[in-house]
Design a protein around this nucleic acid. Structure first.
Length: 214
DNA sequence: TGCAAGCGCTCTTCCTGCAT
DNA sequence: ATGCAGGAAGAGCGCTTGCA
């Protein structure tokens, strides 16, 4: 294996086919005007060399990669796997590709914003929450839309699917009380999870409203 | 159909200023 | 005079696209 090896470029194909590099580009561009004979020569040369167009320069020019980053915190939850499968099918059907990014945190994706910006992804989808305004601003500056869960941050480039965790906590306290419960415990989730904090606060508030000890 | 500009980034080369 | 560090400038990457 030579360290200097590189895949064939459009220039290599052009040289082999006896046409210009731009003719090769047109041959691979759907709808571009090019004589059938020229296209056939280009395709034959491309086949012989094993040429496949490099998408990176296009990303360079258009600033659009066609890639949607999906950020996950782990695969321990079967719900994530099911969601991923459905999501990747939908993306493929829409002519997009999926970049799967795993972060160490189970709840917060702020730490990978730099990385995502570097890949020039078209959008970010995550079940993790975006918690810092700084990270949100960075994505907004690059005009990268993000769809996330349970983020309080708002902006033109952020869409968040949220549940009212505080109200859910209150409702849980009320329901348990209605079913005859008199002494309550709370099995808490991770302390750095905004959803967990809101649920716990809502639960405590619900108990207080019922004049019950926490 | 070909030429050439331009996209954003990295790497290399060249130049300048400073310390020894 | 020499060596080093830092900054500026230019080349190169592979492709698309406007124009001739």
């Amino acid at each position: 294996m030579s360290g200097n090896w590189r895949p064939p470029s459009s220039i290599d194909v052009a040289r082999a086919a006896g046409v210009s590099q731009s003719a090769v580009s047109r041959a691979f561009t759907p709808g571009a005007k090019i004589a059938e004979a020229t296209r056939a020569k280009v395709m034959a040369a491309a086949e012989a060399l094993g040429y496949r167009p490099n998408l990176l320069p296009k990303i360079l020019q258009t600033n659009r990669s066609g890639i949607v980053a999906v950020v996950v915190g782990g695969f321990y939850n079967p719900y994530f796997a099911m969601t991923l499968e459905a999501f990747s099918k939908a993306l493929t059907a829409a002519g997009r590709q999926m970049l799967l990014v795993r972060v160490d945190s189970d709840r917060i994706l702020d730490g990978v914003v730099d990385q995502l910006a570097g890949y020039r992804v078209d959008a970010v989808v995550s079940a993790l929450a975006l918690t810092s305004q700084e990270a949100a601003d960075q994505l907004a500056k690059l005009r990268i839309p993000i769809v996330t869960l349970n983020s309080d941050l708002a902006g033109d480039w952020i869409r968040s699917v949220s549940s009212d965790n505080f109200a859910a906590g209150e409702a849980a306290a009320r329901l348990l009380h209605e079913r005859g419960g008199r002494r309550f415990g709370f099995v808490a989730g991770p302390a750095d999870s905004p959803a967990q904090v809101a649920r716990e606060a809502g639960f405590a508030h619900g108990l207080a409203a019922l004049a019950l000890p926490p």
